[in-house]
Amino acid sequence: MLTAIIALASLALLASFGLAMAARVFAVEIDPKVEAIEEALPGANCGVCGLPGCAELARHIAEGTAEVDACPVGGEAVAHMIASIMGQTFEGGGVRSVAMVMCNGDDEVAAKRFFYNGVYDCNSAALLFGGDKACSYGCLGQGTCAGVCPFGAIDMLPSGLARVNPEKCTGCTKCVSACPKGIIKMIPSDRTVHILCSSHDKGGKVRKSCRVGCIGCQRCVKAAPEGAIEMEENLAVVNYEADIPHTVAESCPMNTIVIRGPGIVEELDTENKAAVEGRA
């Protein structure tokens, strides 16, 4: 009994001495800055910066091979934090950009050609005749963008439309490349006048397929300051660099122009509101 206790205790002493020596001799020096920067980064490992993950970016920033604002997701706040860790000053620049789905044709207003009951995924739905919507440009509402968003910033409305929550959107652009219709655009987050349509079809065809589609009548082009709204193949497109008064929306006969953005209270119907708020 006693022999066993002494034997084990001395073995333990020997081993702990060995470990203590090893920890000293083989110590890996970690730059405390790397750890601090990694702590400051969002930690989504989304890969938008072009590096394999947040830890890798932190190492690059600490070594000086990447800028303090290299994380597009973290934006200005994170850049300021990293700058102070690095002992630099960061001069904030510009407005962050957020994603917006350029389609407002939900199941209420946009016609469908058939009943789709295949795989719940926009790319799969687009394999059959380009999707069930009568408008070949419209949001398919099968949630692919919401699925790829690492930040849970996209809500699928029960009315069959994807909607980006600009508060949560970090501008990582993953949804932009995931959308088979290519209708998600990056816009400056402080803008409030939007033309939510991507259809390049002629007016007559748009009217048949959607009640809120742009028919290319150009009334908004005339109502807005020069160069603020421009025509691109039967579609009015907002120039987000220009300032546009909200009254332009009144010129649109199809209600395609939507006022949405910071400081604007929007009225959603109860069902959609519950979906948006339920996830917020």
């Binding site: 295949g118 795989v119 995924d121 790319n123 799969s124 394999l127």
Partner: peptide, 13 residues
């Protein structure tokens, strides 16, 4: 499971 639909998607990708 909609197997063929998945596989067609995979082939397309």
């Amino acid at each position: 499971r909609p197997m063929v639909h998945h596989l067609r998607r995979g082939k397309a990708e």
